[in-house]
């Protein structure tokens, strides 16, 4: 009987990193979007916040696409 601690450890590390990174990116995207929306309501615009938000969502989308690729492959 041999327990593959290495595999278990890497599953733990990768899942932890992926989860926290994705959730952080997504939340930052929401923060940016929220700033942008608040600014538009007051007649101004927050281009930087909006671009940042879109970048965050693009990264999250890329990660999800990679996830689907992993499922299919």
């Amino acid at each position: 009987m041999k327990i593959d601690w290495e595999a278990l450890g890497s599953v733990f590390g990768v899942s932890l990193f992926a989860t926290v990174a994705l959730v952080a990116l997504f939340t930052l995207g929401l923060v940016g979007l929220s700033k942008h929306e608040a600014a538009t309501e007051q007649g101004g615009s927050a281009t930087l916040a909006r671009s940042g938000a879109y970048l965050c969502f693009a990264l999250v989308t890329a990660a999800v696409t990679y996830g689907i690729y992993l499922i299919v492959a």
């Binding site: 599953v11 733990f12 899942s15 932890l16 989860t19 926290v20 994705l22 959730v23 952080a24 997504f26 939340t27 930052l28 995207g29 929401l30 923060v31 979007l33 929220s34 929306e37 608040a38």
Partner: peptide
Amino acid sequence: VAGIAAYLAAKLTYKLGDKVGEKTSAKG
């Protein structure tokens, strides 16, 4: 594994996202 990851992620999203507007938050 899943519990620790979800715990940290939940803490983080509350911390980072506490200034997010209600509408954006709900939709997002």
